[in-house]
């Protein structure tokens, strides 16, 4: 049952995200949402890699692949928190930081997703297919 893989992946992904936010809380007290940004950029890179590299792996079942990508990485990253944090920055008159947050998420996310995707393709070529 694929829903179980996605659900258990969701538990792991959400807890990892929560762990990152707690870790950042211990040393980052600025208003800029560093934890969510780190989570989202890292997750974009890993999902890009997973999609180009692991999706071709015949040994990995469709269920496990969906659990990893849609479940863990999908839940590790978040769009709702990003949106709310942007509004909060704007409400507190940090317009420059809000703009910076949107731009770094937008272009940084694209760049890292692409980098992960390409890295996966390169690894696939080098190993002649994941084994």
């Amino acid at each position: 049952m694929i829903y179980w893989y996605v659900g258990i992946g969701g538990i792991i992904g959400a807890l990892l995200r929560y762990g990152v936010s707690l870790a950042f809380n211990s040393f980052w007290s600025g208003v800029f949402p560093m934890a969510t940004l780190t989570t989202n950029l890292l997750g974009s890179c890993v999902l890009g890699w997973l999609t180009s590299y692991l999706s071709k792996n015949k040994r990995l079942s469709k269920e496990l692949y969906t659990g990893l990508g849609t479940g863990i990485i999908g839940s590790f990253t978040t769009f709702s928190t990003f949106s709310v944090e942007t509004v909060k920055l704007m409400e507190n008159a940090h317009l420059g930081l809000a703009f910076l947050y949107v731009m770094v998420s937008l272009f940084g996310g694209l760049l890292l997703s692409y980098a992960g995707y390409r890295a996966g393709e390169k690894m696939l070529q080098r190993t002649g297919g994941a084994s």
Binding site: G10, N40, T77, S80, F82, G109, L112
Partner: peptide, 13 residues
């Protein structure tokens, strides 16, 4: 719930 319901990585992919 909302953190996992929404996704940034899939959107970027």
């Amino acid at each position: 719930f909302m953190g996992a319901f929404t996704t940034f990585s899939t959107f970027k992919l």
